[in-house]
Amino acid sequence: MTQDGASQFQEVIRQELELSVKKELEKILTTAPSHEFERANSNRTMLF
């Protein structure tokens, strides 16, 4: 695999991981009490 191919592969994996983390966070937040959701939602802009 060339260097370009490897870095492109890494970028795809990074994007998939980021999407997966966001989906899991959304699942967690939907089961949290509303006050926890509001606090996490205000902090989310700092995370993503």
Rank of each mutant, 00 (worst) to 15 (best):
H35Q: 08
A6R: 07
E16V: 08
Q3I: 15
V21N: 05
E16Q: 10
Q10R: 15
E36G: 09
L29A: 01
T31P: 02
T30Y: 01
F9Q: 12
Q8C: 08
T30D: 03
T45S: 14
I13E: 15
Q3P: 15
I13L: 15
V12H: 15
G5P: 00
S42P: 01
V12Q: 14
E38A: 05
N43K: 14
K23E: 13
T30N: 04
V21P: 00
E16L: 12
E16A: 12
Q8R: 12
E24Y: 10
A6I: 07
L19F: 11
R39F: 01
Q10H: 14
T45G: 14
F9A: 12
E11T: 09
H35S: 08
R44Q: 11
S7H: 02
D4K: 03
L17Y: 12
S42H: 07
K23N: 14
T31Q: 09
E11D: 11
L29Q: 02
S34M: 06
S7N: 04
V21H: 03
S7D: 04
V21Y: 03
P33D: 00
K22F: 06
R14G: 04
T2D: 07
S20D: 10
K22S: 07
R44M: 10
F9M: 11
T45C: 12
K22I: 03
V21R: 05
A32V: 01
S42T: 04
R14C: 04
M46W: 13
E36A: 10
E38K: 06
V12W: 14
N43W: 10
S34A: 11
Q10E: 15
S7E: 04
Q15N: 07
V21W: 02
I28H: 05
S34T: 09
K27H: 10
V21G: 02
G5V: 01
N43V: 11
I13G: 12
F37A: 03
T2V: 02
L19E: 08
R44E: 08
E36S: 10
Q3C: 15
S34N: 08
N41M: 10
E38S: 06
E38R: 05
A6Y: 08
S42D: 09
V12K: 15
S34P: 07
A6H: 05
K23F: 12
N41P: 05
S42F: 02
